[in-house]
């Protein structure tokens, strides 16, 4: 079984639980005492990930770190439909890579703001929040026009991709860092759609959605 080195409150760990849950891939969680124990910086964990970061997976001896990289791996290895990461579609792969990069920027801003407010990390909070708002503004505009074109998801496809999974968690957790999503109504509609993907699961800080109206 896949082992996930995990911390319950981490949005980057959650995105892997989310994708594996949706794909129906069984996995075992190895809880790391990230806070306050800082076990991810402990000597034994640094042997697994010298960067001292979560998440990490161990798939029968194949060890991989970095949430976005792991999403790519999981979709390629465990999604027979090929829809979550369409390997033969050059444009889609380009778009997905672009939004995975954006997910990292969201982590560097919105997630950092949350770590500052909730867990007392020493970051420049104004800069984190301003950075998150700048990204959310771009995201909202992108999603608004996607809707106008009849697309529900980040990468202009009829089916969600790992890009949606990658960006979702720290967008949803932004208010714990004092980043209101009130100015981003198209983002709100998109997060509701993500919550209605079959197999969706929550984490602390993220609520589920009501069921969609039956047609």
């Amino acid at each position: 079984m896949i082992k996930l080195y995990d911390f319950e409150l981490s949005g980057n760990c959650y995105k892997l639980r989310l994708l594996m849950g949706i794909l129906g891939v069984p996995f075992e969680r190895i809880a790391i005492d990230f806070y306050p124990g800082r076990e991810h910086k402990s000597p034994w964990f640094l042997k697994i990930n010298p960067l001292g970061q979560l998440p990490v997976i161990d798939d029968h001896g194949f060890i991989l770190r970095d949430a976005q990289a792991i999403l790519v791996y999981l979709a390629c290895a465990y999604d027979p439909s090929g829809l979550w990461y369409p390997r033969d579609d050059a444009r889609m792969l380009g778009r997905i890579a672009m939004w995975l990069g954006c997910a990292d920027s969201i982590t560097a801003t919105a997630s950092a703001a949350r770590l500052h407010d909730s867990l007392f990390y020493d970051f420049d909070i104004d800069k984190c929040r301003a950075g998150a708002h700048a990204l959310f503004r771009v995201l909202d505009e992108h999603l608004w026009f996607a809707e106008q074109e009849g697309n529900d998801w980040l990468c202009s496809s009829k089916h969600p991709t790992i890009a949606d999974i990658a960006c979702f968690p720290y967008v949803m957790l932004s208010e714990e860092g004092g980043v209101s999503r009130l100015p981003y109504p198209a983002v709100r509609r998109w997060t509701d759609r993500v919550k209605r993907i079959p197999g969706f699961m929550v984490m602390p800080g993220i609520f589920g959605a009501s069921p969609a109206a039956s047609e």
């Binding site: 009130l182 709100r188 509609r189 509701d192 959605a209 009501s210 969609a212 109206a213």
Partner: peptide, 8 residues
């Protein structure tokens, strides 16, 4: 939209 709540 249906089944959504807008904050304003």
């Amino acid at each position: 939209v249906p089944r959504n709540v807008v904050q304003t």
